[in-house]
Each structure stands twice: as structure tokens, then as C-alpha cells.
């Protein structure tokens, strides 16, 4: 096999990786539109979208490394950063939603946090009254 064929095969593979990433992003946005409550939506949005974007960034990283001879630390740093911050943002958003009183979907099967949060708030109220 001559180098040119290998190059074009590699190019197509990277293109397909990027396309898979874009497809995962689109499906997770469908989830963002379709699912019934905030918590379920943030499952779809913050994590599957993160996975899709990781695919795309990895494809870009490989592309510039192989074809442009440019080992990009910035892109690598971006990948690590998205990997770390995406889920943390989802957690903060979910916690804020629960504490500000956004209710769960009516089809939810159990809620262990409700009672505990109520008890915790009551204890704090009593502690302040003393």
C-alpha cells in the first residue's frame, strides 16, 4: 500500500469519528427536547453531549497530529477540561434545581432525598431558634 492510500483511509476514519460525535450530539439534543423533567434532561444534555463533543475533539486532535504535524497541547487541555467540567456542571444544576423546588416527573418511582432534605431543614430551623 502506498502512503497516499493510507493517508486517505486515515482521513476518512477521522471524518467518520467526527460524524459519530455529531450524531451523538444530535441524539442527546433530541433527548433534551423530549424528556419530561429537568433531571432527565440533564442526563441527556450534560453527559451524552459531552461524549459527542469528546469524539469530535479527539478527531480534531488526531487530524492535526497526523496531517499537520501539530501536537496541540491546547486541544488536549480542552479535552481534559470538557471531560472534567461537563458532569460537575450537571451536578450543580441538578442540585440547584432540587433545592429550589423543581418537582420530579410524575412517572418517577422513588424519591429518597425528599424526607431527608425536609428533616435537615427542620433541624437547622430549630438550631437557629435556640
Amino acid at each position: 500500500m502506498n502512503p497516499e492510500t493510507i493517508g486517505s483511509i486515515l482521513e476518512s476514519v477521522i471524518g467518520i469519528v467526527v460524524l459519530i460525535g455529531a450524531l451523538i450530539s444530535v441524539i442527546s439534543v433530541i433527548g433534551l427536547i423530549r424528556l419530561p423533567d429537568v433531571y432527565l434532561r440533564s442526563h441527556a444534555a450534560t453527559k451524552s453531549a459531552t461524549l459527542g463533543v469528546l469524539f469530535i475533539l479527539n478527531g480534531a486532535f488526531l487530524y492535526f497530529w497526523i496531517f499537520e504535524d501539530h501536537f496541540s497541547i491546547k486541544l488536549l487541555l480542552g479535552i481534559v477540561f470538557v471531560f472534567l467540567t461537563g458532569p460537575v456542571g450537571g451536578h450543580l444544576n441538578g442540585r440547584a434545581a432540587y433545592r429550589s423546588g423543581v418537582s420530579l416527573w410524575k412517572g418517577s418511582v422513588r424519591d429518597d432525598l425528599k424526607e431527608d432534605l425536609k428533616r435537615e431543614r427542620q433541624e437547622r430551623q430549630e438550631g437557629r431558634g435556640l
Partner: peptide
């Protein structure tokens, strides 16, 4: 609710990042 909008805004940010990577390629 507001958390819905925040999740959507976060998603838009992350997708923009991917779009810019693709444009760069």
C-alpha cells in the same frame, strides 16, 4: 423552569466548542 434553561445554555456552549473544532479542521 430556570434550571432547564441553564442546562440548555450549557449544552449550547459545549456544542459551539465542537463546531469551532470542526471549522478549524
Amino acid at each position: 423552569s430556570i434550571p432547564d434553561r441553564i442546562a440548555a445554555l450549557d449544552t449550547i456552549g459545549i456544542l459551539l466548542l465542537a463546531t469551532i473544532a470542526v471549522i478549524g479542521m
